[in-house]
Amino acid sequence: MKKNEKYSDQELISAIVKRENVNQAIRFMYDGYYRYLENYVLQNSGSTDDAADMIQETFLVFIKVVEENKYRQESGVKSFLYSIVKNLWITELRKRKSMGIRNEMFENAKESVTPDISHSLVKHESHKLIMELFQSLGQKCKNILLLFYYENLPMKEIMEKEDFSSEQVLRNKKHKCLKSLIEKIQSDEKTYSTIKNALQYAG
């Protein structure tokens, strides 16, 4: 039994293969390589807990590889352990990144879909109500307000479409139409709020 002594790579492999003093051999790996392997994980976005998990898994993988006679000894034990922990940690980071992306997509969906639905409902109800009120203002006012708020046409184009002599005349008419609209709904606060939303969401 080797106590408080260093194992050569060959002695370490032999202990694992022959199942002789395996616990002592594993203790040697912890004492000799833990900090070295931990440092890799810590320098690559990992915590001490992450490192502990990765190193434990690394040693288990190493022992399994040795027991199955798949360790070709083309590199030293230290280098081989490093390659194992590196691969394990890269795989873990990819999993976390993938999960993070999925979570982010889910959160973004929650943040964007709900307002979009709400917006659509408000727009639909507001549009319905404002169309009824526009109709009551007369055809000319209805056309002006629809062209301006819903089709976002410039005043010059509306002037030509509706045969106004100047933009100023059109502006005066639009102002009167809006004034009439407000007078029709000023006694109903709920309706007024809905109309404001309709104008806000128009287009």
Rank of each mutant, 00 (worst) to 15 (best):
F62T: 02
Q168M: 09
N44R: 12
E104N: 12
E107A: 15
N172C: 06
L199S: 04
M105F: 09
N108R: 10
A15N: 10
F164W: 04
G203P: 00
F62S: 00
L60I: 14
G203H: 12
K184E: 02
G203N: 12
M131K: 14
S165I: 13
H175S: 13
A202H: 00
M1G: 09
V77K: 00
Y192K: 14
K174I: 07
V41Y: 03
E107F: 07
E189N: 10
K128C: 10
K6Q: 10
K142Y: 03
I117E: 11
K2P: 01
Y71D: 06
I158C: 02
A25S: 07
W89M: 08
R94A: 13
L199T: 06
R27T: 09
E183T: 04
F80Y: 15
W89R: 06
E5R: 07
K2W: 01
V17S: 02
L133P: 00
E162A: 06
R102M: 14
S83T: 06
E111P: 01
N197E: 12
S120T: 11
A198Q: 03
F148S: 03
T114E: 12
M131L: 11
M159Y: 00
L181P: 00
N108G: 12
S8H: 04
D188L: 09
Q73V: 11
R27H: 06
K173E: 14
E11M: 05
I55C: 05
Y40F: 15
K18I: 06
S8L: 05
S120I: 09
E162Q: 14
L153G: 00
I130Q: 01
D53N: 09
G46L: 09
K128Y: 14
I182Q: 13
E104Q: 14
L81N: 00
N69W: 08
R102P: 01
T114I: 15
L153T: 03
S79W: 07
M105E: 14
L93A: 07
K78H: 08
Q10N: 13
K110V: 14
V113M: 14
N87P: 05
L129I: 13
S75P: 05
V85G: 04
P115M: 12
N44Q: 06
Y7T: 01
A52R: 05
I16R: 01
S165A: 15
Q10T: 15
I144H: 01
K123I: 08
K174S: 06
V66I: 15
D116Q: 13
P115A: 13
K173S: 10
C141L: 02
M131C: 14
Q24T: 11
Y40K: 01
V66S: 03
I144N: 03
Q43H: 11
D188E: 12
I16V: 07
K142N: 03
Q139E: 08
